[in-house]
């Protein structure tokens, strides 16, 4: 698996798109850190971008890589390697290279700006950790879709729809339900609903560390007492991990039956 991982990273690190992605983050962060006096505001803007864009790019890269390397994957499948190792290698390769673009693109301006000693460093680290999680989650979801759908165009469409669902549609339905059942106690529902969408979960995790911890208190003691504590952080991170583990499990069960 490590060999596959090594080569897929090697391949991706030379891809133009990795650089475009890296340079995009680099320029975004530079302009945010240097044209903006307020570091927290910069991190909030970065969060807005990362929470929406990382899943989108992860999804697109995931399906694109799968479909474009289909024939090569077949060559690998004829080699004496276990199937699951080939796909895990590719999956981790894509996720890692995307994470690398993110971490370097955002991290370099941060270091140059000299923020390493500042208090923002924890928030910043959390932002990167969450960004990495989102990469791994959405590449895994994208791979699931690609593995299930042989038609490239169709697979691509479903993948974008999946992203749109998590990024927008889910929240729209969620908000609709909250408003409609306004008269009922909603904290447990709210908590569970945020756990079920990795984008929402990531956003809340970062918001809590930035400006909104007390804002959430406004929604009721239950939510704040959950998200405001270390326990909440641990549960949230575990929920994010589940969002990686479950798609991988489905991927490996799918792989056992899949014909190439």
């Amino acid at each position: 698996m490590l060999k596959i991982l090594k080569y897929s990273i090697y391949d991706l690190l030379r891809s133009r798109w990795s650089y475009v992605y890296f340079i995009f983050y680099l320029m975004l962060s530079f302009s945010l850190f240097f044209l903006n006096s307020d570091i927290d505001k910069a991190i909030i803007t970065l969060m807005n971008v990362i929470v929406v864009l990382t899943p989108l790019i992860g999804t697109i890269f995931g399906v694109m890589y799968y479909y474009s390397s289909k024939e090569f994957t077949e060559l690998l499948l004829a080699q004496p390697i276990k199937r699951s190792k080939i796909f895990m290698g590719q999956y981790i390769g894509i996720s890692l290279s995307l994470t690398l673009s993110l971490v370097l693109g955002v991290g370099i301006p941060f270091v140059i700006y000299g923020l390493f000693k500042s208090a923002a460093v924890f928030d910043f680290t959390l932002l990167l950790v969450v960004g990495a999680f989102l990469n791994f989650i959405f590449v895994a979801l994208a791979y699931n879709i690609a593995l299930s759908i042989n038609n490239k165009i169709k697979g691509f469409g479903y993948a974008i729809l999946m992203w749109l669902t998590f990024a927008v549609i889910y929240d729209a339905v969620f908000m609709g339900l909250l408003i409609h059942y306004n008269d009922y106690p909603l904290d447990k529902f709210t908590l569970i609903a945020t756990m079920l969408n990795p984008i929402d979960l990531s956003r809340i995790l970062i918001l809590l560390k930035l400006d909104a911890s007390a804002l959430l208190g406004y929604t009721g003691a239950f939510l704040q007492s959950f998200y405001g504590t270390n326990m909440g952080l641990i549960v949230s991170l575990s929920a994010l991990s589940m969002w990686i583990v479950l798609p991988i499990l489905r991927m490996s069960s799918k792989l056992k039956k899949k014909d190439f």
């Binding site: 908000m175 909250l178 904290d187 709210t190 945020t194 959430l216 929604t219």
Partner: peptide, 20 residues
């Protein structure tokens, strides 16, 4: 305005849908 009506919706703060 929505948060005033339904405080729980605050968890959607800064989501893409809310921006829209």
């Amino acid at each position: 305005y929505i948060v005033n009506q339904t405080p729980e919706t605050l968890v959607l703060l800064r989501s893409l849908f809310v921006d829209i």
